[in-house]
Design a protein around this nucleic acid. Sequence first.
DNA 1: TCTGGGGTCCTAGGACCC
DNA 2: TCTGGGGTCCTAGGACCC
Length: 427
Amino acid sequence: MPPRQILALVDCNSFYASCEKVFVPSLANRPVVVLSNNDGCVIARSAEAKAAGIPMGKPAFECRELFRRHNAAVFSSNYTLYGDMSARVMKTLARFSPNLEIYSIDEAFLELTGMPYDVVAYSRHIRETVGRWTGIPVSIGLGPTKTLAKVANKLAKKDASLEGVLDFEACADPDAVLERVPVEDVWGIGRRYAAMLERLGVRNARQFRDLPRDLVKKRMTIGGLHTQLELRGIPCLDLETIAPVKKSVAASRSFSKPVLAIEDMREAVATYVTRAAERMRAARLLANGVTVWVQTNTFIEGEPQYANSAYAALPVATAHTAAIIRAAIRVLERIFRKGYRYKKAGIMLSGLERLKSRQLSLLEPAPEAGGRGERLMRVLDAINDRFGRDTLTFAACGIEQDWRMKQALRSPHYTTNWRDILEVKAI
DNA sequence: TCTGGGGTCCTAGGACCC
DNA sequence: TCTGGGGTCCTAGGACCC
């Protein structure tokens, strides 16, 4: 028998809010809130903001009074900063285990199976090191499966006396622990399943774990069954130490104000293609198709609503921004209807394949490797990388960009832009 | 006035083929 | 009383995650 697996789930506390705090010491004890794109909804809250009763996911304009009353510091989201801070945290974590899965921007699983240390003490050490090296506080849950490590992590966050670390296997009464976990807090059980389970009288993780497995499989398909088995301590979800190749890359944004003219919509679509194509090239991928979609504002009752999407195959797999913009604009012209007030548009690149193993077309001449198009994109990326995004861009993206999202409260790019680097004065 | 964005997986059902 | 069956591919819809 192989030794029982021990996984650690390391999760950054209030990640985006914590990133903002790192560079502004005076925020240490103040409620900090980060808003979604367009300064729309609350998407991250520091512990103080949670204590002040600022709700997750609420539209910012409905929270204004709460923000004022609690003297909250409010930020637009700054993904450049969060992405860079995330990389620092992950790099630190990688020192503590050879097997690491970066699960999201603020979470990673570490394999601690067979470590010759006390895993709880080791986890405390990981936590302190990440805190000291990056300024980001983390919590760590330990368990024999990913799902149980997640459960332990959630509990570690709730109970301050645990000092940020909980080992599920060390709990004297695991049933009692699982009974404290509402079923909708279990990883893999969302709102819909929670409502269905509620109708069956299932409210906590223990009750769900003990349901007949046939019932779970029937109502929640294979994924639900895996979740249940993992709660029983049977691993069903492997640690994925190598990130799987992406299957699609998307970019979409709400507009700061309604878009009526197709000219503006073309600019937006071209801009989103630019973003997505950049990311695709960074991952050394090519797309075979592009989907474009547009949508009016569904929140406004009584206004005529319209939403549509369409797809076009690209003649050859490509990561060339101009080629994809051309195709995307043709798609847009098929679905755009005049007379609506559009709120949102997006594009998705799909049928991705690796640059190294591309399929050639029978009909089109094979683009020579390192041909003009590819060289142009390389130069474009290099310039934008060095001098900042959109230093060089495509005319189709427009100049004015009236529709562009609002980010009135964005913090500086402290760690990725020389102009924004902190100055420290020693007095 | 103001309501996020980017992903994945699973299943059912239809089209099509032999 | 009768209706073929099995495999594959694609799409739409529904669920989930952070």
